[in-house]
Amino acid sequence: MSAAATRLLRDPVSALGLAIVLFAVFVAAFAPQLAPYPEDAYESHLLQRLRPPSAEFPFGTDNLGRDILSRVILGTRSALAVALSVVVAAMAIGIPVGLFAGWRDNWVSDVLMRVTDVFLAVPQLILALALGQLMRPGIETAMVALALTYWPFFARTVFAETRRLRSALFVDALAGIGARPSRILLLHVLPNALPAVLVRATIGMGFTILTAAILGFLGVGAAPPSPDWGLAVAEARQHLPEAWWFPTFPGLAILLLVLGFNLLGDGLRDAADPRLRRSRR
């Protein structure tokens, strides 16, 4: 694993991805300290609305006179928190399903994988929209909907790894010396599937940030006055073309953070799977 980590850092593209992600985590952790006007998450100042970027407001101000730089910084925290909760929840469902269905060959594992197929029968965003609407719209519902639409990817990944490993020699040996299936799965199969899960999770972070932003933009995710990036772009539409800075900077923030996770995921995939590295060389 440490050899893989060295390889990862030596690739400038993945190192850049890691740097972006670490920077975002830092910004999210110290958002209230870093934001020039932390109270602008909720307060409005109508006298200074729609000011262009200046030394005072580097990213300009929005339709309620709030500092866009501060809101972009404060929005980092919620974007990361939403994505992390969604990915962790999706893993909590997908990994057990994948392990169980991959280990056995009975009707239960068949049913589990058929259910997985059902969730993959519609594109994620459409399903998330439908689920979000069936429940009450809001950021919590959006998160539940996103987790419910993303777990099948973890289930598929872990299923494939478990199927590959269950006939491995070391698994036979463990069964031979009397290890229980639960022990083999959790202590031996799962750690081997972890690199693939990690790659999936990293790409999933980027994907979730993007999808959550779309939900916010369409008005089914975060609600005002949340400093959500997608919501900010939606609010900005009525003030174009005059206030070009209003949608530009929140959108750039989405781009940068998703790019960071995608670059990192790309690098992790190459580091974890030597077969793929060959074609990259």
Binding site: L210, I214, F217, V233, L240, G251, V258, L259
Partner: peptide, 12 residues
């Protein structure tokens, strides 16, 4: 190209 939010690109 995979990191750009489509709605934002559209507006830009």
């Amino acid at each position: 190209g995979l990191a750009i939010a489509s709605f934002w690109l559209a507006i830009m």
